[in-house]
Design a protein around this nucleic acid. Structure first.
Lengths: 209, 209, 209, 209
DNA sequence: TATGAATGAGTATTCATTCAT
DNA sequence: TATGAATGAATACTCATTCAT
């Protein structure tokens, strides 16, 4: 019962966040969309921030589901790295509103309040857990832990940058498919790792020979 | 006369944007900082957005000055590519408020908006002109025009992504220096171009031989 | 059963009134303190005001208990007058929240209001019954009924004024002990009564002699 | 011009404070009464508290004017003491709304926020300056400074207590004129002072003789 | 006897903007 | 060229109360 209503309100919130942007979304508007009085929302959510945090949390959960599914279906480490990085990219490319949702946090990050320390850390942890398969795969391909983490962060950065490009059309793309940029980036990373492994192997053989 | 006063107001706006953040900056505050009444600003600027657009325009001009200087001092194409990409990155890494200024545009759904079609196109053009040296250098290194543009867009994307990481601290960096990520990316691009040129050259020699 | 629960709610109300002040005390908070839902309180009390009236009634009952005990232990009329006046003063000096409770009635223009005519008259009657010993003692000391009543009202007024001073610290007290003010006042009244009795007696002797 | 409008708003505020009580008076209501939008008031006053503080300040200024006039017209110390104490009493007896205004502060005093430290101290100082003639007269009548101050505080307390009685009708007055209570109190104080002076004089004569 | 859910009216304050002067 | 005065819409959030269950 109550969960059902919460769900309806969350749906309404998503609609309004999409329509008015995150800054423009007022409690009044969300309540109106949900067919409620503003005061009624406070029965289900403690604050506007709590409501937003829940919407965002669901978004990240959906992202994780998608990425994990792709990674689970991949056989080799290089396939897993590719699956995680492109899975992340594809999710947001196909769900631009979830991207907006996520970017709001980064803005919040720019001014330092966020959603309150606890919520903020939980969301960060969720986001990192989505990206971990990239680091794991890199390690499986022979990278040191430090390098593996660097690769994870770098892939995240590249994905986010390309998504921004795609999303805002601020740079003319000259007909480039944005996904091609991401694929090219991932391929290059994988190749570097494989080459490095080969080199190390050769070294080892040489040393032992 | 009028230009001088416009300048004073723009300076005041920058001060307030830095002090209060972009969301927190009100016309009242900017006017007060400039020693004017809010109403007086409307004699010089059509709206708050127009004021913001002009501040942003100046920011991009400053970016261009810095990047062009670095590129001009570079001797080889690969040095120019590196200078342009890292110059872009460094400018925003060192001037985070200018980064805020830029990201602000992506708000409210992150679509180009709010500033009106004309202003928006002018800003886009200015931004592209900053990044063109990357494409030019890539061409000088033997890339087709299409690839050169792709490399330009990709470098932009990577820089933006890493800056976001740096700026928001939302992903734990494990002590990584963000600039290292950008350097690593640029080096890899340059190497790919050089390798490609060598290969092409070898092909050509082979074909001719 | 029902009375027991009423009692629990009234206890909770007292706790919340003390913790949050009278203005800050909301029905929600009282209900939460009592372990109930706000709506549940309406089964036991007609309104927030009714709840307040009952808490106030209990407060006055406690006052009466204390004053009556002191008066009962006093042997002479002058001791009874002193006991009643200082008992009244001490009760509120030691229980400032009860004083708040009483003053709250005077709010909103300080006219008897808000609680309805009936409740108001009952509270007034209860308050008067606390103070009656003063008038009785004055009569026992020879005062006419009219004067006795005047002395009662005057003592009430003085006590309330000093309590206000004590409670709000709005007038610098220069290290004065507030109770000293009240004691001084009561002593003077008693002396006036005794002097008056002596004079009357002398007159009577003279008239008869 | 501006002062005139401020005056109109202050008048409106007084009307609303009277009509709705001080707690019940909202900015909306004051604005409506003044024929303005709520936002317009913020052009003239910084906050609701500032508005109230000004209304109250004017009230205390009027009180001071009245009391000082009476004191100035009095020839002897005992006449000045009486003039100050009864002047204070009469002002509030005749202007019950000013009494409400003043009591609000005491309530604020009960919960410790008041009007902010500065405003609060200024108002306290103004109030004390009204009452100082009482202490001065007492000293002129031979009281030590400590006693003179005690008499001042005590007279204030008595006046306030009787005014409360008068104002709230919470104690049946049995046809008593409240002013009679105050007069009786003041007369007794004056007599005590005179008696004390006589006694001291006699002592002095005796000591010297 | 109690609850979960909802309401409508209310709060002070801020905002970008306008307009007569 | 600039101001003082004003507006209308907006903000998140709280309150006592009601009512179907």
């Amino acid at each position: 019962m109550s969960d059902h209503k919460r769900g309806l309100i969350l749906d309404a919130a998503r609609v309004v966040f999409e329509r008015d942007g995150l800054d423009g979304a007022s409690l009044r508007a969300i309540a109106a969309q949900a067919g409620y009085t503003p005061a009624a929302l406070y029965f289900h959510f403690d604050s506007k921030e709590a409501l937003y945090a829940e919407v965002l949390g669901q978004s990240i959960a959906a992202l994780k589901t998608e990425v994990d599914a792709r990674v689970g279906a991949a056989a080799t480490p290089q396939a897993r790295l590719t699956a995680a990085a492109l899975g992340f990219f594809d999710f947001y490319a196909e769900n631009p509103r979830d991207l907006d949702l996520g970017f709001y946090l980064f803005r919040g990050g720019m001014r330092p309040h966020g959603l309150g320390r606890e919520r903020d850390m939980a969301l960060n942890a969720a986001l990192e857990s989505v990206l971990w398969p990239i680091a794991e795969a890199a390690e499986a391909l022979g990278a040191e832990l430090a390098l593996a983490r660097l690769i994870m962060a770098d892939a995240f950065a590249h994905a986010v940058g390309v998504l921004l490009l795609l999303h805002t059309k601020r740079i003319r793309m000259f007909g480039l498919a944005p996904r091609a940029l991401m694929e090219r980036y991932v391929e290059a990373e994988v190749e570097k790792l494989l080459a490095s492994r080969t080199a190390n192997h050769a070294d080892a053989v040489h040393a032992n020979g």
